[in-house]
């Protein structure tokens, strides 16, 4: 196939290059959660709605920064890509503090993904909510993080 034909084939994709990259090459997912020891776990969504995701975090006891963020997602391409991007945002540059993580919003994930089709935003960007639930789970188990 010529380059020109390739370009035509790729045109009209509803998703950005970044979304495609994270969908086809998802980062930090947890293939098997058996035996994985997380400090906090959170879920969001429902299979009835077509999106269900779980997030696991490991927190450094000294710095209270998230040193590992794993996930599993049943959902469409944008749900998978936004889960993957969320896990990167949280763990890059040495990891976010819990205070920072709880403030991650869907817009933060969206912007980093280079946008999403309008009808996808509300239903498929759930990563931050599962993350918040994981942080809350950690705080509950660790005496409010103190």
């Amino acid at each position: 196939m010529s380059n020109e034909e390739n370009k035509k084939e790729e045109a009209g994709w509803a998703y950005s290059e970044v979304v495609k990259d994270h969908f086809f090459n998802p980062r930090n997912y947890l293939a098997d959660s058996d035996g994985y020891k997380a400090d906090g776990v959170g879920t969001e969504g429902s299979p009835v709605c077509g999106d269900l995701l779980t997030v696991w975090i490991k927190v450094d006891p000294e710095t209270k920064k998230i040193k590992e963020c794993k996930w599993q997602t049943f959902g469409c391409a944008s749900a998978i890509a936004s889960s993957s991007m969320m896990s990167e945002i949280v763990t890059e540059n040495g990891g976010m503090t819990l205070d920072q993580a709880i403030k991650v919003e869907s817009a933060d994930i969206m912007n980093r993904l280079g946008g999403l089709p309008m009808n996808k935003i509300h239903c498929s960007v759930l990563g931050h909510m599962a993350l918040h639930n994981a942080v809350k789970d950690y705080l509950k188990k660790n005496n409010g993080g103190k």
Partner: peptide
């Protein structure tokens, strides 16, 4: 365990054109 739109898009990468009854693919 596999969502239809994700599946159809993965197949599309292998140049297989398929469709799905998943919500995510509908308007």
């Amino acid at each position: 365990g596999v969502e239809g739109e994700a599946l159809a898009l993965m197949l599309d990468k292998y140049r297989i054109c398929a469709s799905t009854g998943s919500a995510c693919s509908s308007r």
